[in-house]
Design a protein around this nucleic acid. Sequence first.
DNA 1: TTGGTAATGTTATATGATTACACAATTGCG
DNA 2: CGCAATTGTGTAATCATATAACATTACCAA
Lengths: 140, 140
Amino acid sequence: MSDHHHDHHHDTAALTKNQSLVMGQLSSANGPLSAYTILDRLREHGFRAPLQVYRALDKLVEFGMVHRLESLNAFVACRQPGCDTHETIAFTICETCGQVAELSDPELADHLKALAAATGFVLKKSTVELRGLCRACGRA
Amino acid sequence: MSDHHHDHHHDTAALTKNQSLVMGQLSSANGPLSAYTILDRLREHGFRAPLQVYRALDKLVEFGMVHRLESLNAFVACRQPGCDTHETIAFTICETCGQVAELSDPELADHLKALAAATGFVLKKSTVELRGLCRACGRA
DNA sequence: TTGGTAATGTTATATGATTACACAATTGCG
DNA sequence: CGCAATTGTGTAATCATATAACATTACCAA
Ligand SMILES: [Zn+2]
Ligand SMILES: [Zn+2]
Ligand SMILES: [Zn+2]
Ligand SMILES: [Zn+2]
């Protein structure tokens, strides 16, 4: 490997056209988007088929620029600087306004790992999605 | 039948025909099943449409007898006695054999609640799904 | 009996994701 | 450069998951 930074730090310039378009939609959205919503919004840019979106999403997730929310079947742009340095991320998802926030907590990672290890389970990837009310909606 | 007790403790006798059939499939399976897999297995018992499965599943989840695994879009019978007394449950899902185990840990519940509360988030429901290798598969 | 509630049956449709195949662009190397 | 390997793209078809809409039936209680 040469010394240019292709390892796990991807800036937008390195993205392909389709990846940039999908990333643009997610970045400018103020919440998670489904793959088909992204598709609809990119039809005017020439997108015609789901696969164009899913292929871009696969890469963006691989690059750590986008997260998939399992409980919503949707995708959200990463907004946590240095997100890729933390193994475990938790998401809060507001059931009223749809806002998603990322939480990172090394102790949580350790806790989950220990909890799993107690049963002999080797932890590879954690999905932690917390549903409830965000600060703004909770005050109502 | 004169003695009906529909509190929040549901035994199989209280289930309707369709609910019993769906519960039977999940109980006898050794892992999670998708709604459509359940449908296929119940066609010989007269099931014809997805809704028959989904409606039963909704109730069984409501009763706490079945859990939905968000990251698999599948359902699994609860095997943890007294599961309903614990607010937060984590699942381990083996990526090799598909086996699912339930973990309950009051500390984890507290930890998540505190983590969320630190950002003003009111936690209603937690989804914690841990992917990796179970003890048996990890030894390989 | 009569009316309300819960459960069921059926069809169609909405939503989410992948398979299969053809082709173009890019990269890496002799 | 010439060529092959890899990666990205386009398109159609299909599979998989979930719900909407509406009619009917079973059950329980006033
Ligand atoms: Zn992130
Ligand atoms: Zn909110
Ligand atoms: Zn349980
Ligand atoms: Zn296993």
